[in-house]
Design a protein around this nucleic acid. Sequence first.
DNA 1: GGTTAACATGAGCAGAGGTTCCGCTTAGAC
DNA 2: GTCTAAGCGGAACCTCTGCTCATGTTAACC
Lengths: 192, 192
Amino acid sequence: MSITAHRPLRADARRNREKVVAAAAAAFAETGLDAQVEDIARRAGVGVGTLYRHFPTKDALVAALAEAHFERLADTVEAALEGEPGDGWETFTTTIWRIADAVAADVAWCEIVGGHPTAGQNASRAEHRLAAATCTLLARAQASGAMRADVTFADLSTIMCGFGHIAAAQRAGAALDWKRYLRIALDGLRAR
Amino acid sequence: MSITAHRPLRADARRNREKVVAAAAAAFAETGLDAQVEDIARRAGVGVGTLYRHFPTKDALVAALAEAHFERLADTVEAALEGEPGDGWETFTTTIWRIADAVAADVAWCEIVGGHPTAGQNASRAEHRLAAATCTLLARAQASGAMRADVTFADLSTIMCGFGHIAAAQRAGAALDWKRYLRIALDGLRAR
DNA sequence: GGTTAACATGAGCAGAGGTTCCGCTTAGAC
DNA sequence: GTCTAAGCGGAACCTCTGCTCATGTTAACC
């Protein structure tokens, strides 16, 4: 692990980098993770070579965008935790629905959430933040008594993994309804 | 739609066809749907040309195996319906668990179940049988009063779609547990 | 045993999509 | 204005994988 002092990018390079990121976000949101590199470059109005100057591989580009996504999710959960401490269950479900709405709007995001959850060690900084905040959210919901005591963070990950997959499939035209899915799954978490 | 009278295959051709089907089943079960055609042919001890003589495309091979799978699932559900009519909810959950166990043992099957559900019109004969039997199973569970009345067949498809995806991911090494998932989802279907 | 249509083979083709590379352009320092 | 290192473009390359087809083999019928 080394700290590299980047000299500032030349103005045109910085502009192009931003164009690439924006184009990639748009392409991935529409088409999903198998949006093509050439298409992203075309949308950005640059050559593929320029894209590869800024991101060594397509995966690196995806990872950069994913990190930004997770950062926003972590913000959402942390904000919910800091709000006035009402009912733990209510806060929990509201937050999950808010996250789901955000994710469902972006095909690639669905696919990332639906993909195999990153193993603990390989998780990025933002993923760790998100996990930590979510654990607290979960604990509070359990403390309120409305959530089953045996539910774990892993259970929640699993449910959200299923959600991502279903939302992506729905976006792809399958006769599925992620809202109904999530309602059932969350109901399954309630204490009886 | 035409009925073609197939003349019986030559003995060696029949043997090879069976070897291909068995090899494909094994390869798909282990590796999933992206098992390679060449690998399947190698396992079967034939050339790829032979495989293509029996199945015009890889998709056709998958479809043939999938049909057999769905046929067995339909058998399972129909058998459950014909058993002594005990508690509708109990029969329902037992059957779902039985199906899940069978599917989870085969990566490709997980992927098929987890894939976008076939649109009604394109569904195969076996899929129709399965759907019809499952609807009855569902209706009986609701009649018993233990299942929420607003649950639809589509909800069940969605849950099983999530299940397939999660089971496949688990087989691929993700830290997920399809049994815990299914327990939560089925609980979410219960009347409160 | 002879004949032939059915069958098997696997090297090679084709298309897709990620990545590289080198000649050209230009921002920015002096 | 001049210089040059940084940046750009995109054709070509590489790999992967499903699929074809020309050539050789053999089951089955007489």
